[in-house]
Design a protein around this nucleic acid. Structure first.
Ligand SMILES: Nc1ccn([C@H]2C[C@H](O)[C@@H](COP(=O)(O)OP(=O)(O)OP(=O)(O)O)O2)c(=O)n1
Ligand SMILES: [Mg+2]
Ligand SMILES: [Mg+2]
Length: 1010
DNA sequence: ATCCTCCCCTAC
DNA sequence: TAAGGTAGGGGAGGAT
C-alpha cells in the first residue's frame, strides 16, 4: 500500500532532489553519545523534527566492546525505495548491515553487533566524535523511484491522532514523547518562543523555562500516551497540569466582555459614517489633506519656542474649547469608564499602554519582522560577499531576481503536504479559538497565500474577511517566524555561491549578478535558464520551498520577469522582447508605481507603458518632478541604469507604531514615548551608530473620520512631525526621551486623538568613526591582526574589548602588534623583538582604565582562575604568555594575584540553575568562553537560544536587584556579538529589547553600555 | 543652486 | 480580537 502514494507534479524537479534524508540525530549526553537514525526533511535542523525514527546507533562500545545499532529494516527499506537519501554516515552504517543490498532480514528493532565505528566526520555528528579513517566509504547508489517528494506518507500510515497539534515537550522523557507526537500526526517545537497549541510537562516548574507560557495549555505526558492507547485525541481537561494556566479567571473574562461592549458601540458609530474601506491603498488617509492645513494645531497656536511650552499649558488653554468635544467616540470611552468605575486600560493587555506592549507587538508583527530582517540581511549579504573574491567580468550583464513563491505559505506547507493543493493563507486569524462564524468578520491581514488560493482572487495584504468571501474553503495557518528567518538566511547563503554581486531585497527576495558564469563575448549565445534551473533546484532541495527566478539585463527586467516566471518557474525577459512586452504592460506593474502614482497617471489617460511612449520627458517631469518624471520615462521603455548592490550605508534608524495606540491621558502618551525611545536607542546601539537628528511623528485621527476598520488600527489619520538637531549627538536613551518629549509637546495633539507614534534618527555616523574601520577591520582583512588577537585572547577577550579602547591605545596596540608580526615573520629582525616588546604599550592598567568592560572582564578572568605553578593563569596559553614582554607578564601575574579578593563581590552572580546551558556559570568569563565555543560549533538557531537564555538569566538578575555592573557586562557582551556574527543580529536586537524592558521596569531607566 | 523641514509614497 | 513596520526616494516650498 505504501507504493500507491498519490503523485504530486513538480515541474522541473527530478527525483534525485527529493529532500528527504535518512540521517543521524544526536541524543544522549556528552559522555554517552548515541544517535537516532531518522527520516527527516533535508532542510530540518539536525536534531530537529523528523518524520520517522528508524532506529538507534550507539557510538560508544558497550562493556563487550560492541557498538550497537538498532534498525527497523522494513521501514528503512521502504524509505530507501521511495528515494530517501541516507547521509554518508548512515549509508556506511546501512552498508555495514547490508541493508543497502536489501537482504531479507526484516526484524524490526533488532540489535546487531557492530565492531567498528564508521567515521563520524559529517556535519550531523558534530558532537564529540573525532574523525577517523573511513573504512566503509563506498559510495551507495540508492534506487530512485518515481515518487517525488511525498515524504510524509510514511507518517500517514500511523493515523493522525495529533493532527493539528503543535506541542512543546518540557519534561522527560522528552524525545520519546516527541516521537510519539510526530508518529501520530502531530508536531513539536523546540524553542520557547515558538507558537504551540499544547505544552507537555510533568511539573509546573517545567513550564517556567521561558516566561511566555503563562497563557498556554499545559498538559501532562499521560495525555499523549492515553490518546495513543485509545487511538483518539482525548479531551485535555483531565490532563491539564494547572487549570489556571489556561483558563482565564472570571474577573478577566468579565472585563473582556465590558470591553467588547464598548467596541460594539463604536462599531455601530462606525457603520454610519464608515468611510474607511479595505481597498484603500494609502494607509493613513483616503483623501489628501489640504496643504497648509496638515499642521493646523501648531500653526494655529502661537508657539515659537517649543521648549518653553508644555503640553500642560496646551491642555489648560484648550480645556474650555476642546476641539474633540464633537468627536463622540472619545467621550464615549471616558463616559463608560466613569460610569462603570472600571479603568479599562488597566486590564486590557493589547494596547500600547501595556508596559510590555512593544515586546509582544513586535513578536507578533509580520511587518516588523519583514523590516528588521531586511536590514539584517543587508548586512549579512555584505558579510557573505566580503568573503568571496571579487570576479571581474566585462561581458554582458546577466541579473537574476530570485523570489520565493508565496514565501510564508510555502514554509508552512512543507510540513503540511496534505494542504498543498488546497487554498491556504498565513494569518493571525488562524490562532483564533472561536468558530469559523466570527472569522468571516476578521480584520486580520492575510500575509501570504498559496497559488491555489490566488485562483480565487486572494492576494497578500487582504483582510481575512474579504479572503473568506472570495474563498470560503480557505485554510488558515499561523505565522512561523523562526522558520521564515532560517529559510531566509539559508537562501542568502545558497545564492552567494552563485553571485558576483548580491543585493538584498527582502527575506524572500534577492538580486544576484551572475554575468561571470557566461562568456565575455556577446556574440556567443548562452541560455542563462539552465543556471536558473539549477539554482532553483538547489533551493528546493535545501529549503523545501520553491523559488522563481526572473532573468534580465537590468534590475527592472529581471524583476518584471519574475512576475511572469511565477509560480515555480523562470523567465528570461530578453531585451529584444521589451517593446512588445511593454506595450501592454500596465504601468502599475512597474516597481515604484503604486496606488498614488498609478492614479495620477491614469488621470492623464495613461494606463500602460505603451501609453507613455508618446509622452515627452518634459511633460512627465512637469507632472511628477524631475527625478520621478525621468524615472517613469525610462522605466516605461525598459531602461534601468541602477547598478546592483549600489547601496549607501544606513541613513536612518527608527520605529513606528500605528497599531494599538489608544491614550487617555498625557502620562500614558509620555510613558509610551519613553518606551519607544528606549527601543529606538537600543537599535542605534546595536547598529553601532550615533545620531544627531531626531524626527518625532504622531498620527492623528482625521477629524470626523469613522472608526478604524481594523481592530485597534489607526484608521484615517493625518501625520504630523517635528525634527530636532542635537549638536552633541543623542548620547543616551534618556536624552532621546527628552528630545521626543519636547517634540511631542510642540506637536500639541490631544492624547485621545493619537493613533500612531514614530521616532526616527538620522544624521548617522559610525559610533567609533574612522580609526575603527581603517585600523581594525582593514588590518583584519589583510590578515595582519593575529598578534593583536593573541594579545587580546590572552586577556580573555577578542575584538569587542579592543573596540572599547581609546583611539590612541588601539593605535598603539595595532602598530606594536604589526611590528611584532613583522618581527616574527622576518628572521633578520630576530634581534629586535626585545626592544619592541619593551615598548609594547598594552598595559593592563591602561586597558582597564579605558573601559569598564575590559576592566571587569580581565579582572574577573583573573579572579576566577586558580593559580598555576608559574603564576600563569591556566587558561592562558603558556607559549603566548612566554612570548609576551616581561613587563606584561609581571603585570598579569600581579593582577592575577591581587584581583580575586577585590572583585569577587562585584563580579560574581548567583548561579543560573534554571537556565539550560548556563548551569554552574556565574561569571562573565565562563559565559564568554561558552559562547565563543558555541558560536564556533553550533548552528545559528542553537546559539540563538543560548543568547535568549543568557538574556533570561540577566533578566532574572535584574529582577533580583543588584548585580547591575554584572548585568551591564553581560549586556555589553550581547551587544558585541553581531559584530563578528552578523547573522545573529535579529536575536541580539530581540534580546537587548527584552533586557531593556526588564531593566526599565526594575529601575525605571534603561541600562547603558557605559 | 543647494539645503532644510515636513511631508508623501513605495516595497516587502 | 489583533499585532497597519520601516528605510529610502523624493517633492514642495521656504531659507540660505
Ligand atoms: N502585504 C504583504 C506582502 C508580503 N508579506 C510577507 C509574506 C510574504 O510571503 C513575504 C514575501 O512577499 P512576496 O511579495 O514575495 O509575496 P509571496 O512570497 O508571499 O508571494 P509571491 O509568490 O508573489 O512572491 O512577505 C506580508 O506579510 N504582507
Ligand atoms: Mg515571494
Ligand atoms: Mg518577495
Amino acid at each position: 500500500s505504501t507504493h500507491s502514494l498519490p503523485l504530486i507534479h513538480l515541474p522541473g524537479l527530478s527525483l534525485i532532489q527529493m529532500p528527504v534524508r535518512i540521517r543521524l540525530a544526536r541524543i544522549g549526553c556528552r559522555h554517552d553519545p548515541h544517535y537516532r537514525i531518522n527520516v527527516a526533511n533535508s532542510w530540518a535542523k539536525r536534531d530537529g523534527r523528523h518524520i520517522e525514527k528508524l532506529g538507534e546507533y550507539h557510538a560508544q562500545p558497550d562493556q563487550s566492546g560492541v557498538k550497537r545499532i538498532s534498525l527497523d529494516f522494513a521501514r528503512t527499506k521502504y524509505w530507501l525505495s521511495v528515494g530517501a537519501q541516507p547521509t554518508d554516515t548512515v549509508a556506511r552504517l546501512l552498508g555495514k548491515v547490508k541493508l543497502i543490498e536489501c537482504i531479507d532480514i526484516c526484524r524490526p528493532e533488532s540489535f546487531l553487533p557492530f565492531r567498528e565505528a564508521p567515521a563520524m566526520e559529517e556535519k550531523e555528528s558534530t558532537g564529540d566524535g573525532t574523525a577517523r579513517n573511513n573504512e566503509f566509504g563506498q559510495h551507495i547508489v540508492v534506487k530512485q523511484e518515481n515518487l517525488g517528494p511525498r515524504q510524509a506518507e510514511g507518517l500517514a500510515q500511523r493515523g493522525k491522532i495529533f493532527s493539528g497539534i503543535v506541542a512543546q515537550v518540557n519534561g522527560p522523557p522528552q524525545h520519546e514523547l516527541e516521537d510519539m507526537i510526530v508518529q501520530h500526526g502531530g508536531r513539536f517545537e523546540q524553542y520557547h518562543a515558538s507558537p504551540v497549541t499544547h505544552m507537555i510537562a510533568t511539573t509546573p516548574s517545567d513550564t517556567e523555562i521561558g516566561q511566555l507560557q503563562l497563557e498556554r495549555l499545559v498538559v501532562k505526558p499521560q495525555w499523549i500516551t492515553d490518546s495513543i492507547r485509545d487511538k483518539r485525541l482525548l479531551p485535555v481537561d483531565e490532563y491539564q497540569l494547572c487549570a489556571q494556566a489556561h483558563n482565564k479567571n472570571p474577573s478577566t473574562l468579565s472585563v473582556v466582555k465590558a470591553t467588547n461592549k464598548i467596541d460594539v458601540t463604536k462599531n455601530e458609530n462606525e457603520n454610519e459614517n464608515g468611510s474607511e474601506n479595505e481597498n484603500e491603498t494609502c494607509r493613513f488617509s483616503d483623501d489628501f489633506v489640504a496643504e497648509n492645513e496638515t499642521c493646523r494645531f501648531s500653526d494655529d497656536s502661537v508657539i515659537e519656542d517649543e521648549t518653553r511650552r508644555s503640553y500642560d499649558d496646551f491642555v489648560a488653554e484648550n480645556e474650555t474649547c476642546r476641539p474633540s468635544l464633537e468627536e463622540a467616540w472619545h467621550s464615549d470611552i471616558a463616559d463608560s469608564e466613569i460610569g462603570t468605575g472600571n479603568p479599562i486600560h488597566h486590564l486590557r493587555l493589547t494596547d500600547a499602554n501595556d508596559p510590555n506592549f512593544l515586546e509582544h507587538y513586535f513578536a507578533a508583527s509580520r511587518l516588523h519582522h519583514l523590516s528588521t530582517w531586511r536590514e539584517d540581511l543587508k548586512l549579512f549579504a555584505q558579510s557573505l560577499m566580503r568573503k568571496r573574491k571579487k570576479k571581474l567580468h566585462s561581458g554582458p550583464r546577466v541579473l537574476f531576481h530570485v523570489d520565493m513563491d508565496c514565501f510564508f505559505a510555502s514554509v508552512s506547507l512543507r510540513d503540511r503536504q496534505d494542504l498543498v493543493a488546497k487554498p491556504v493563507a498565513i494569518t493571525h486569524a488562524a490562532n483564533r479559538q472561536d468558530g469559523a462564524m466570527k472569522l468571516k468578520d476578521s480584520s486580520s491581514d492575510l500575509a501570504s497565500c498559496n497559488y491555489a488560493a490566488r485562483e480565487f482572487g486572494l492576494r497578500n495584504g487582504m483582510y481575512i474577511k474579504t479572503a473568506l468571501q472570495l474563498c470560503p474553503s480557505l485554510t488558515l495557518l499561523p505565522y512561523e517566524y523562526e522558520k521564515y528567518q532560517q529559510v531566509s538566511y539559508e537562501l542568502y547563503r545558497i545564492l552567494a555561491n552563485y553571485a558576483d554581486e548580491l543585493q538584498a531585497v527582502s527575506c524572500d527576495e534577492v538580486f544576484i549578478d551572475v554575468s561571470s558564469a557566461f562568456p565575455n563575448d556577446p556574440s556567443t549565445v548562452v541560455d542563462p535558464s539552465n543556471l536558473a534551473e539549477e539554482i532553483r533546484k538547489v533551493i528546493y532541495q535545501k529549503l523545501g520551498c520553491n523559488a522563481s527566478i526572473g532573468i534580465g539585463s537590468n534590475l527592472l527586467l529581471a524583476r518584471l520577469a519574475t512576475k511572469k516566471a511565477k509560480p515555480n518557474g523562470q523567465f528570461y525577459l530578453k531585451e529584444d522582447m521589451v517593446s512588445e512586452y511593454f506595450q501592454t504592460l500596465p504601468l502599475s506593474n512597474i516597481p515604484g508605481v503604486g496606488w498614488s502614482i498609478e492614479r495620477r497617471l491614469s488621470e492623464n489617460g495613461w494606463k500602460t507603458c505603451g501609453d507613455l511612449l508618446s509622452v515627452p520627458l518634459s511633460r512627465l517631469r512637469e507632472l511628477f518632478g524631475p527625478k520621478q518624471g525621468s524615472t517613469l520615462y525610462e522605466r516605461a521603455r525598459g531602461i534601468d541604469n541602477r547598478l546592483i548592490s549600489e547601496s549607501k550605508p544606513r541613513q536612518s534608524v527608527g520605529a513606528d507604531i500605528t497599531w494599538g495606540v489608544r491614550f487617555e491621558t498625557r502620562d500614558q502618551l509620555y510613558d509610551f514615548v519613553n518606551r519607544l525611545s528606549v527601543h529606538v536607542f537600543s537599535k542605534l546601539e546595536v547598529a553601532r551608530l550615533v545620531s544627531y537628528k531626531v524626527q518625532f511623528r504622531l498620527l492623528r485621527r482625521t477629524p470626523g473620520a469613522g472608526e478604524p476598520i481594523k481592530r485597534l488600527g489607526h484608521g484615517e489619520c493625518d501625520a504630523f512631525s517635528k525634527t530636532r538637531r542635537l549638536g552633541g549627538g543623542i548620547t543616551s536613551a534618556m536624552a532621546l526621551q527628552e528630545a521626543c518629549r519636547v517634540l511631542c509637546n510642540s506637536l500639541s495633539i490631544p492624547p485621545g486623538e493619537i493613533r500612531g507614534v514614530g521616532i526616527f534618527l538620522s544624521d548617522l555616523a559610525e559610533k567609533e568613526p574612522g580609526p575603527k574601520q581603517t585600523s581594525v577591520l582593514s588590518l583584519m582583512e589583510q590578515g595582519q591582526v593575529d598578534p593583536i588577537e593573541r594579545v587580546l585572547k590572552m586577556l580573555g577577550y577578542s575584538q569587542d574589548v579592543f573596540d572599547e579602547l581609546s583611539e590612541e591605545l588601539r593605535q598603539e596596540i595595532i602598530s606594536e602588534a604589526t611590528m611584532k608580526r613583522h618581527a616574527e615573520i622576518s628572521p633578520t629582525k630576530q634581534c629586535q623583538p626585545p626592544a619592541k616588546q619593551r615598548k609594547l604599550p598594552v598595559k593592563l592598567s591602561a586597558v582597564k582604565r579605558e573601559t569598564k568592560m575590559a576592566k571587569t572582564s580581565i579582572i574577573d578572568m583573573l579572579a576566577s582562575r586558580p593559580s598555576a605553578p608559574t603564576g600563569v593563569p591556566q587558561e592562558i596559553d603558556q607559549t603566548v604568555f612566554d612570548a609576551l614582554p616581561e613587563e606584561i607578564q609581571n603585570e598579569l601575574r600581579e593582577h592575577y594575584r591581587l584581583a580575586k579578593p577585590m572583585t569577587h563581590e562585584l563580579l560574581t552572580a548567583p548561579i543560573a540553575d534554571c537556565i539550560p546551558g548556563f548551569c554552574g556559570m556565574h561569571n562573565i568569563e565562563e559565559i564568554h568562553k561558552w559562547f565563543s565555543k558555541r558560536l564556533q560549533d553550533e548552528p545559528a538557531a542553537v546559539v540563538k537560544v543560548d543568547i535568549l537564555d543568557l538574556t533570561e538569566y540577566a533578566i532574572q538578575l535584574v529582577s533580583l536587584g543588584g548585580f547591575t555592573e554584572y548585568v551591564r557586562v553581560v549586556f555589553r557582551y550581547i551587544v558585541a556579538i553581531p559584530k563578528e556574527n552578523v547573522h545573529l543580529l535579529p536575536t541580539v536586537q530581540l534580546a537587548v529589547d527584552k533586557l531593556q524592558n526588564a531593566f526599565k521596569s526594575a529601575y525605571g531607566t534603561s541600562i547603558s553600555l557605559e
